[in-house]
Design a protein around this nucleic acid. Structure first.
Lengths: 111, 111
DNA sequence: GTCCTTTATCGTTGATCGACGATATTATCG
DNA sequence: CGATAATATCGTCGATCAACGATAAAGGAC
C-alpha cells in the first residue's frame, strides 16, 4: 500500500513519481509504518529483535498462522527494508536491518 | 484494519477478543502504526503537530485530495486516538492527542 | 426563515490486504 | 539420482481501503 499508490488522476500525470506534492518523506514514513500496521508483523519484528540469532521457520511456530501466511508477512517486511533474509542451506534466516529500524525510530521520534 | 481483524477461524472462536495469543500489545502497536500507514495521514499529523492552533478545513487546502477523502482520513486518525476533533461553530478544529502521540513514540522507541 | 459555509456521511468503484491450501522451488541427505 | 525438508509462490476468496462525487447535517449571517 505504501509503495504503489493508485494513480488516480489529479495527483500525478504520466511518468511522475506520484508522491503527494513536496512530501516524499511522508511516503517513506508511511511505508515503514505500513510494515508494522499488522499485529503479526509487529510480533515478527519484535521476535527478530529479541533473538540476536536470526531465526527462520521458528517464526512460523510462534504464530498461529499458516506457513504461507507468515511467509507473506515476511515478504512485506523484507520489502519495507526492515527485515533481511539470508539463505542458509535449505533454511532462510531473517534478521532485523538495524539501519531501517533506526530510521523508523528517528522518524517517529522527530514527529 | 487494525481494529476489526477478520475473524477467520483458527484464530479465535466466538466471543473471544481475537488478539494473537498473548500479545495484545502488538494489536495496539499495529493500530497506531496503521493510522500512519498512509502518506496523507502522515502529512495531516505533521501538520497538526506543527500548528499549535488546531486547524480544521485548512487541512483540505493543504492536500491534493477531495474534501470527502480528507474527512475520511481524519476519521481514521480520530479512531486511532491520535487526533481529536472539537466542534467550533460550523467548523471543526482538529488537534493532536499528546498522550497517544507519546504512546506511539514510546512503543516505537522501545522496539 | 432562508441562504451559505463547513464538515460528515453515503454509495460506488477499483485496488489491495490477509488468510488459506496447493503447488513450485531449492538445498541437503542418503 | 531420488526423497525429504524448508520456503516461496500461486490462485482464490471475502473483507477492507481509498478515492471520488453527491448529498445530508449543522451553525451562522442576512
Amino acid at each position: 500500500m505504501a509503495k504503489r499508490r493508485s494513480a488516480s488522476a489529479k495527483c500525478c500525470d504520466d511518468a511522475s513519481p506520484c508522491v503527494l506534492p513536496s512530501d516524499q518523506s511522508a511516503e517513506q514514513f508511511a511505508s515503514l509504518a505500513w510494515a508494522l500496521a499488522h499485529p503479526a508483523r509487529v510480533r515478527i519484528v519484535r521476535l527478530l529483535i529479541s533473538r540476536d540469532t536470526c531465526v527462520c521457520g521458528e517464526i512460523v511456530d510462534e504464530m498461529p498462522l499458516a506457513q504461507s501466511t507468515v511467509s507473506q508477512h515476511l515478504k512485506i517486511l523484507k520489502e519495507s527494508g526492515l527485515v533481511q533474509g539470508e539463505v542458509d542451506g535449505p533454511k532462510v534466516c531473517y534478521c532485523i536491518n538495524p539501519e531501517k529500524l533506526a530510521m523508523l525510530k528517528s522518524l517517529v521520534a522527530s514527529l
